[in-house]
């Protein structure tokens, strides 16, 4: 089929290149949609933990899809298989696509080996949201925590992810920290790989042994 002065026609939808699409959507539209999502879920639950879980589940579905899309679009169908690789992929690539900017910081937890934190001074989903005092430490960032969990889970790094408000000195508004705690098996696997690596290095014959 030949297009008459039009863009190239593709007979098969699968031949069509995956367009980068429009990079931005209206923040207001998103804010209203997100607000409705929270309000709807509020009608379905009877405690805050449940609400947090439901928001996280909604985010999980987004995360799983985002991983699939970005691996195809940005990484040429390759996926990060290293822990730090996937974390920095979330911190930069995923954040940039979803929120238009790289996350403010990615840190390793000081107390536990298996914890990592992504901090954001003002999380996009929290931009217009004031959580009432009676809801305690509830954070709508649970949705973003769900996205992170979705990406990590899809990439084979199961983790427990949660969102917390952390007050900053000299600032009226607290920042949001996404706490990532990897499942035991991930850490075990990492240790296993490290161990095997060291055994391999130790076994490697040294040159001097062969040259008398």
């Amino acid at each position: 089929m030949i297009g008459v002065g039009k863009a190239k026609q593709y007979g098969n939808v699968l031949d069509k290149p995956l367009s980068r699409g429009r990079q931005e959507v209206s923040l207001s539209a998103f804010a209203f949609l997100f607000s409705e999502l929270v309000q709807y879920n509020q009608t379905q639950v009877d405690n805050i933990a449940e609400l947090e879980r439901r928001l996280e589940d909604a985010g999980y579905a987004v995360g799983a899809r985002v991983l699939e899309l970005l691996c195809h679009r940005d990484k040429g169908n390759r996926r990060e298989t290293r822990l730090l690789g996937i974390l920095s992929f979330i911190h930069s690539t995923v954040w940039k696509v979803l929120f238009g900017k790289v996350a403010d910081s990615l840190e390793k937890g000081t107390e536990h080996e298996d914890e990592y934190m992504i901090s954001e001074k003002e999380l996009l989903v929290n931009r217009f949201i004031s959580v009432p005092k009676d809801m305690g430490a509830f954070n709508c960032g649970a949705f973003v925590a769900g996205i992170v969990r979705g990406v990590l889970d899809g990439a084979g790094f199961p983790a427990v992810v949660s969102a917390h408000f952390v007050p900053i000195e000299g600032q009226q508004r607290p920042r949001t920290t996404i706490l990532i705690k990897f499942a035991e098996e991930v850490i075990k696997l990492l240790l296993q790989i490290l161990k095997e690596f060291f055994v391999f290095v130790a076994r490697k014959p040294r040159k001097s042994q062969y040259c008398p």
Partner: peptide
Amino acid sequence: YVLKNPFYEMEMPIRCELFEL
């Protein structure tokens, strides 16, 4: 800061920290 806040009920008194700020 009021209408986009999921915890605000329409026509009710406004108690939103971000709005105040």
